[in-house]
Write a protein that binds this DNA or RNA. Structure first.
Lengths: 232, 232
DNA sequence: GCATAATTTTATGTATACATTAAAAAATAC
DNA sequence: GTATTTTTTAATGTATACATAAAATTATGC
């Protein structure tokens, strides 16, 4: 085999390193369920899948282990971690705290109303999607709202750690998207949050978002238990 | 050079992998300031320092990068990240949220008063240390209190993410240990928290700890600004 | 002398060789 | 036939070779 591979997909934006490619590719495969929770793979298998040597695969698995997506078990392969309802509760609690902090920071920082435009726009898309009962579009817009909110907090750390935990529960969210009730409350919550942010009322923004996330957690937990999902 | 090295230090508890050793050794060197913030090192230099090949060093630096302790800059060496007052604020805010959650969880979970014994014991050590004006001992006991509290929350994720952020601000804490006023309030806060935990009052525990951490943040920020530390 | 181009150096990224050791399989004892 | 020991297999951990490309240096044109 040739030692260095030419970049075949010239359409790719960045000729990033193999390690970066392995990390993002494996992350994608894990959060999409392509590599199912609970399954195990040898380094060699992953290297074969990704068409590279073991070295970048090893480096990527160490990064993903630090992110909590998989476990590197010496000589037993890399195991894709599954999520129990208890894990789910933990992660949602953590996300609740961190996103509430983000909302508070946005309220404190937002000087002009235009800054909040991405939030209004995402909320509008959520409402439109809900009106035509397009759940995928709703979920995409909802995720967008949360991402934008966190970005507006101006904290790269907050963004990164929230993204990590979100990746851990993405599978579960996809699973409950069609069995959950219509998310009318979510849209209303977002409007209320935007109003609080416009007023620059940090405490209120925090409170609204916190309750929004706690409700999301309760709903998720009850859906999982109702449908008997013990390991996702 | 021989390819595999015998374990010379047989006193070591675990013959962990070189990668693990590199990660914990580098972490220690960073948080202690032995590798100063802002300084840069080539992979080869670090490998030499740790008496191993580049491979485990590379793997360790990727893990520490994910933890936010350093930055891997292609061809410019690994840079130990420094912390600005703004970073400090971000990190303390995040720690405030996460530890408050931990306190709340402990209040909800603590069934027997004996469970809280480690917290009482650490607080006692803090008070003793304060009485004899031993700041190092006070800091050690305080850190122990926080660690135990988080452990009692029963969330491995919470523990891990809090530990990561704590590592990022450890240098700054050491720096302000002797220039801060005597921490009498901290000790009182801990006693109040323990009382709330004993009552199982989650909301109160949360509130007390949150205010405790917010005060710690304000103190730290004002100390840094007063003493003109712009990059730590 | 200064800016640009050519060249050299050097640090990293990746593949691969190989030692180690855990796990699996086979052999042995009873 | 089961339990224990020995042997074999195989996956990982680590070192190293080497290609690549960035940075540094030197050479060249003006």
């Amino acid at each position: 085999m040739m030692q260095q591979r030419a970049h075949i997909l010239s359409g790719e934006q960045k000729p990033r390193s193999q390690t970066q490619r392995a990390a993002s590719e494996l992350r994608r495969m894990i959060v999409s369920g392509e590599l199912p929770a609970g399954s195990s793979y040898l380094e060699t298998e992953l290297a074969e899948m990704l068409d590279m040597s073991r070295t970048p695969v090893r480096e990527a698995t160490l990064m993903l282990e630090a992110q909590g997506l998989l476990e590197v078990r010496p000589r037993r392969g890399v195991k894709i971690l599954s999520i129990s309802p208890e894990d789910m509760e933990e992660i949602y609690q953590i996300l609740t705290e961190l996103e509430s902090l983000a909302a508070e920071r946005v309220a404190e920082r937002s000087t002009s109303p235009e800054m909040l435009e991405p939030l209004r726009e995402a909320t509008q898309r959520m409402e439109d999607a809900l009106a035509r009962d397009d759940r995928e579009a709703w979920a995409a817009a909802d995720e967008d709202f949360h991402t934008r909110l966190v970005e507006l907090s101006g904290s790269a750390r907050l963004k990164s750690v929230i993204a990590n935990f979100n990746d851990q529960v993405r599978r579960a969210r996809a699973l409950t998207l069609y069995i959950r009730p219509a998310p009318t409350k979510s849209n209303a919550d977002h409007r209320a949050l935007i109003a609080a942010l416009e007023k620059g009322d940090a405490a209120l923004a925090r409170k609204i978002h916190r309750e929004h996330r706690i409700a999301a957690k309760s709903l998720m937990i009850s859906l999982l238990s109702k449908h008997g999902f013990h390991q996702i």
